[in-house]
Design a binder for these strands. Structure first.
Length: 228
DNA sequence: AGGTGTTATCCATGAAACAC
DNA sequence: GTGTTTCATGGATAACACCT
């Protein structure tokens, strides 16, 4: 993934594959872990955000997930994609936080303000399109927030994050059939709320922005030396 | 009874093989 | 090279079974 230019350090386009980066980190090139974090920040954010709806807690969970991933990097077998492995850690971390606070049965209300993400500047062709896109995204995000946890997680990973059925199944430790059914039921539920505009706005929902990216990366990098 | 997962079936799509 | 047929794969959906 390319990174928002300007405010975020740019990871080279022809960056090494995840497996290679992991190997080099394990060989002692700890700084390269930043490459992995910046590469997978948006996906991890969306995965955790699908479970936790408090933005501050999402960042905490992301940092904890990265630290766990770093600590157990040697356990990564390379059988699944690194991103799948990371998402599984993140989702488990998020679910653990929910269980730890007795909040596994979620309330239906959206988070404060009902708006996800932060101010974002996407160059749309026209003000009309921009307004329509913004409205559709807000509608979608609010609707997704109202889905039950198990449906929301599958929907975010599959539809928004564009993971394959197999990857979602692996990340959530489910059967592929269960993923398909949950996705189908999530769509049915969403259809009642938002109808036609969902499809066009899904890929842009829950944008992971540069300031948050920098914040998470900095916190994790600061914590890693302290653990050695 | 309602929620959830499993199974079976159908459909769409893409790749490979083949004939022309 | 092009068009077609066949096959494999993945996704969507309905029906059913199981569990609480």
């Amino acid at each position: 993934m390319a990174v928002q230019a300007g405010r975020t350090r740019v990871v080279p386009t022809l960056a090494p594959a995840d497996d290679e980066v992991v190997a080099r980190v394990l060989e002692g090139d700890v700084a390269l872990f930043e490459v992995l974090m910046r590469r997978h920040n948006p996906r991890l954010y969306r995965a955790i955000r699908s479970v936790l709806r408090d933005e501050a807690e999402v960042e905490d969970a992301m940092q904890q997930a990265y630290l766990q991933a770093y600590a157990h990097l040697g356990d990564f077998q390379g059988q699944a994609a690194f991103s799948t492995w990371l998402v599984r850690i993140g989702v488990n971390e998020a679910l653990m936080r929910l269980r730890g606070r007795g909040r596994l049965v979620l309330a239906a209300e959206p988070p404060e303000g009902g708006r996800v993400g932060e101010e974002e500047h996407v160059a749309d062709p026209s003000p009309e399109d921009q307004a329509a896109t913004h409205e559709a995204r807000a509608l979608l995000e609010q609707a997704v927030d109202r889905l039950p946890l198990h449906l929301r997680t599958v929907y975010v990973l599959r539809e928004i994050e564009q993971l394959s059925t197999a990857e979602v199944a692996a990340a959530l430790e489910l059967g592929e059939e269960a993923v398909k059914v949950r996705l189908h039921r999530a769509r049915l539920a969403l259809r009642e709320l938002i109808a036609a505009r969902v499809g066009q706005s899904a890929p842009k929902a829950f944008g992971f922005l540069a300031p948050r990216c920098d914040r998470v990366v900095a916190a994790v990098l600061a914590a890693i030396p302290a653990r050695r």
